[in-house]
Nucleic acid binder design. Structure first.
Length: 961
RNA sequence: GCGGGGGUAGCCAAGCCCGACCAACGGCGCGGGACUUAAGAUCCCGUCCCUUAGGGGUUCGCAGGUUCGAAUCCUGCCCCCCGCACCA
């Protein structure tokens, strides 16, 4: 049991308090200084935050800290989001005592007695803000929440929407919504007992003329009309004859209701049963041939019209129903059908897809051993498989007439359009999967015709958004294409709904702006939030309670005049002018970092809306994208039960370790992986750093021969770390700036025995500063304990000093290392336990020849002859042409494939003997035996195995006793 | 199918844009050693195969190609992940 070296939690709390008290992270415009404005999307406040939020958040935070330490005035604000349905829905469910929702709160550790308080949505919002414990460098004076719970923000969003509407970016349109016929209201995700996330899909209604009416069948596969062989109705089911848009349709009663909700004029007429229809003939749309109406049992009366067209070639349901019927002579007889005609019905090949014969439904039914049309489970799987391959790889056959040879994906749309055009078809919307309202009523789809849209489909707007992307910097660059693609396919977005928390549409208070639409340009609000909010989630600033459009026009757009605006809102002109300056100073933001799930909605909306409201110089400058956080190899997600709450992680590891873990989790397009083993390592290393850095410094006040080498390594580490930080590559930064630097120190210490105290101090200072980005608490503690009076978190990040990069020191140390490695290799291979080592360096002329070759190579390509020519002009080399020629071949080869910077090193002639002599005590410690240094050819050299022959410049021969 | 990102030694993961420093960074795991009463922590060494002298062999999804030289460039193929689409 060893006591922790310092009290992690206590130290972290202490510094968090101090930083806050001293306003270290509070940011105000300072025109003389360069600024950096970073932010992340505000989190939604329906529970405690988990690491899925913390990772993108911290990736932005690290960057903001780095920028602060490299001379920038940094703004890193944070707010909270409560727009939308989840909180409201959850609060209502708590009010109803709904057990699942109650359990969710229990699981988050909410005491039983406090659970009833969550009936009030506002309680949720006020309980959960808890991010400060991460030690994040946030300017909390700009804190706020969204919706009309916070008047100035509410006014801001209303301003935004009025502007968008003025410019024609918000328009009315039609929109299918999942709808509860009993409540007569749309059903949001969080009001559903069943069917979360289910969207409406569009069916094609095929109209089969029969007598003076149409039988109307619903299908999702209009391209299969060429394979129709018959119609299915349920003999026991009830149908109605209804007048729809002036035509007479036969559908089931539910379908009649649905059609009415979808904008059709419907008048329900007489009732009939399935039996009445069976045996009749109707002309099939597309196919243009009469087909029989036959009985089946698999029809779902809740979906479509209760009448289904039969395509036994590609629909396993139809194939099985047909098979069942053919085998059921009794039913055929009872319904008075002609057995011969039924026996004659054969599937028609219409789609050729990869890996399938002409009749996939027949094929798969056989393969899966499907017994009958009631074998629902297998049939669903069969359908899914056939549909998938058919849709992606299928091509229409000759049966499709003019569509022969067209891919299914394309044919589907074209055939549907053709049928609609010719009046042979109509459309019907259904939920893609069953949806049940909280009132237990099954949902239908309603076409709402007064829906407000943000018209992201607008070509002009898209063009401007594309242009804004071209001005953006992406981390990583690879996501840029993703954004362009999203802009292209994005359609109009329904931007308001009837329920939930939010801001009302300014021109129509029946509507509440939905959550992805009220959060597109609010980063601008941060620039003035300190004055509007005064550090409170819900503003209590009197004059900010009634902000006008003129206020935002002036502050954010620069139109109008400060005096007028000030008088209007009841504050003074100076303040209004000041806010305009804050905005101009900070905006646009330099980095917004989010999870990659937001690329196709929020982040793209952000670009669109900036383009709509602000001039080009104020559209976003940098977007960072983070993958999906993985824990234990699995994606972190609430629904999969693989969540790690921030408060739990912080409790267990402390903020610094959690931050290190996040930095190490990896960036780019990869999913960041939280590695608990690394956390363990990091915990130890941070504690170790604290202990080392704050210990009474061992060492002497005297230079060592290794000082230049260590400083050189240190500067290289710093340079690489800066490069990595600038690219948000934190794992690399951690490696170069922490682990590699530590390894360099370990080597230095092992080499010199007693370090130079000055070097040690330099190491401590540099390391503490670098590490402060990731582990600010430990570093601040160290900083204070080594006697610094400022804050390390605002200190300047180490500079790479070119003057301290010492190529010669690096070369000589690489030489020592090479000797060490070579000797080890020999010992390993031979298995000899050494009694003594003799290092035999190459003779001086060889070393000169080597350096000559390298310096020639720096000037241009070297050949044997050009080298020899020059070498023969050098005094010490003249006397030995044959020996030189032998060496030259190898030198020329080595030198011609070396890199530029290695040549610089190779070109140096240095005193190998002196270096090895100096390193002798170290080598002797390493090998635990005597080490001698000799030179090839010197008198009295003991070399029984003739090793001296293999001595080369930079690689002494080694003789082991 | 469309768009994007990938496949590197037991695992994680650099390198690939800008071909030679690459048997291929680093971490984990594993083996050995130092330190310690011991454990842990820490530090050092090793960890594709062969090798009693610093060497050799075979590797970077698969198959070809370009090149004096390819993990890196080109062509084709296979597989994985994300988004879209789609799932009567």
């Amino acid at each position: 049991m060893s006591a922790p070296p310092y009290e992690t939690h206590a130290v972290e709390r202490k510094w968090q308090r101090v930083w806050e008290d001293k306003g270290v992270y509070r940011a105000r415009a300072a025109p003389a200084r360069p600024k950096f404005f970073a932010n992340v999307p505000y989190p939604y406040m329906n529970g405690y935050q988990h690491l899925g939020f913390a990772v993108p958040f911290l990736r932005a935070e690290f960057f903001s800290r780095y920028k602060r330490m490299t001379g920038h005035n940094v703004l890193f604000p944070q707010a909270f989001h409560c727009t939308g349905l989840p909180i409201l829905g959850a609060a209502e469910r708590i009010a109803e005592g709904e057990p699942v929702q109650v359990q969710i709160l229990r699981d988050m550790g909410i005491p039983e007695a406090e659970i009833p308080a969550f009936r009030d949505p506002i309680h949720w919002i006020e309980v959960f803000p808890e991010a400060a414990a991460l030690g994040a460098a946030v300017d909390w004076s700009r804190l706020f929440i969204t919706t009309n719970l916070n008047a100035p923000y509410d006014a801001f969003v209303r301003w935004q929407f009025r502007k968008l509407k003025e410019k024609g970016y918000v328009q009315l349109g039609k929109h299918p919504v999942i709808w509860c016929p009993k409540d007569e209201a749309p059903i949001g995700d969080h009001d559903r007992l069943e069917g979360e996330g289910v969207q409406p899909v569009e069916f094609t209604l095929l109209k089969f003329p029969i007598a003076n009416a149409f039988l109307v069948a619903a299908t999702l596969r209009p391209e299969t009309v060429f394979g129709q062989t018959n119609l299915w109705v349920d003999p026991e089911a009830t149908y109605v004859k209804a007048e729809v848009d002036g035509e007479s349709w036969v559908v089931n009663p539910r379908a009649a209701d649905k059609l009415r909700e979808q904008g059709h004029a419907v008048r329900v007429g007489p009732t009939l049963t399935g039996k009445d229809l069976i045996g009749k003939e109707a002309v099939a749309p597309g196919l243009d041939q009469p087909i029989l109406v036959l009985p089946s049992r698999f029809l779902d009366q809740g979906r479509g019209t209760g009448i289904v067209t039969s395509v036994p070639s590609d629909a396993p349901d139809d194939w099985m129903a047909l098979k069942d019927l053919k085998a059921d002579a009794a039913q055929i007889g009872a319904l008075g059908l002609d057995p011969a005609r039924i026996a004659a019905i054969q599937p028609i090949p219409i789609i050729q897809s990869e890996g399938w014969g002409p009749l996939p439904a027949v094929e798969i039914s056989d393969r899966m051993g499907i017994e009958s049309q009631m074998d629902r489970e297998k049939l669903e799987a069969a359908k899914a498989e056939i549909y998938r391959t058919g849709y992606y790889t299928g091509v229409m056959t000759a049966a499709a007439g003019e569509f022969a040879g067209v891919r299914v994906e394309e044919a589907k749309e074209r055939i549907k359009a053709r049928l609609l055009e010719s009046g042979q078809a109509a459309t019907l919307w259904e939920p893609a999967d069953p949806v049940v309202c909280r009132c237990a009523t099954p949902a239908i789809v309603k076409i709402v015709d007064n829906q407000w849209f943000l018209v992201y489909g607008n070509a002009e707007w898209k063009r401007a958004a594309h242009a804004a992307l071209d001005r953006l910097v992406f981390f990583p660059e690879a996501v840029r294409k993703q954004f362009h693609y999203t802009i292209d396919w994005l359609r109009d977005w329904a931007c308001a709904h009837h329920r939930g928390l939010g801001t009302q549409l300014p021109w129509d208070d029946h509507w509440v702006i939905e959550s992805l639409s009220d959060s597109t340009v609010y980063m601008a609000y941060y620039t003035i939030a300190h004055a509007l909010q005064d550090g409170k989630l819900r503003s209590e600033v009197p004059w900010a309670k009634a902000l006008t459009d003129a206020f935002f026009d002036y502050v954010l757009l620069g139109s109008g005049n400060a005096g007028t605006v000030a008088a209007q809102v009841g504050t003074d002109a100076k303040l209004v002018e000041h806010l305009r300056k804050e905005f101009l100073y900070w905006y646009p933001f330099d980095l917004r970092n989010t999870g990659k799930d937001l690329v196709q909605n929020h982040m793209t909306f952000c670009v669109f809306n900036h383009v709509a409201l602000f001039p080009p110089e104020q559209t976003p400058r940098g977007f960072g994208i983070t993958g999906f956080v993985r824990l234990g190899g699995r994606k972190m997600s609430k629904s999969k039960g693989n969540v790690w709450y921030l408060r739990v992680a912080l409790e267990e590891w402390g903020a610094d370790v959690v931050r290190m873990m996040v930095a190490n989790a990896g960036g780019g397009m990869d999913d960041p992986k939280l590695d608990l083993e690394f956390a363990e390592v990091a915990r130890g290393r941070l504690a170790g750093w604290h202990a080392f850095a704050t210990a009474k410094g061992e060492g002497a006040d005297a230079p060592t021969p290794l000082d230049p080498w260590f400083l050189s390594s240190l500067n290289r580490s710093v340079a690489l770390t800066r490069e990595a930080m600038q690219a948000m590559e934190y794992r690399i930064a951690l490696r170069t700036g922490f682990f590699d630097l530590q390894a360099a120190w370990d080597w230095y210490r092992a080499r010199v025995g007693v370090p130079n105290r000055q070097i040690r101090d330099r190491f401590v200072e540099t390391q503490t500063k670098i590490l402060a980005v990731f582990a600010p608490h430990v570093c601040e503690e160290v900083w204070q304990r080594i006697g610094r009076s400022d804050f390390v978190v605002t200190a300047s990040f180490p500079e790479a000093r070119a003057s301290e990069v010492d190529v010669r020191a690096e070369a000589s140390e690489a030489f020592v290392r090479r000797v060490l490695d070579d000797a080890r290799e020999i010992l390993k291979v031979t298995g000899i336990e050494p009694k003594a080592l003799t290092l035999i360096i190459a003779p001086p002329w060889m070393r000169e020849a080597s350096a000559l070759a390298a310096s020639l190579a720096r000037e241009g390509p070297v050949t044997m002859s050009s080298f020899m020519e020059r070498a023969m002009g050098v005094g010490s080399l003249q006397g030995r042409p044959s020996e030189l020629a032998g060496l030259a071949k190898r030198l020329v080869e080595d030198v011609s494939r070396a890199r530029r910077e290695d040549l610089d090193r190779l070109a140096m002639v240095f005193d190998e003997r002196a270096y090895l002599e100096a390193a002798r005590p170290f080598l002797e410690r390493q090998f635990r035996c005597a080490v001698a240094v000799r030179e090839a050819g010197e008198p009295g050299l003991v070399d029984p195995k003739g090793k001296a022959r293999s001595a080369m410049p930079g690689r002494p021969a080694i003789y082991v006793e």
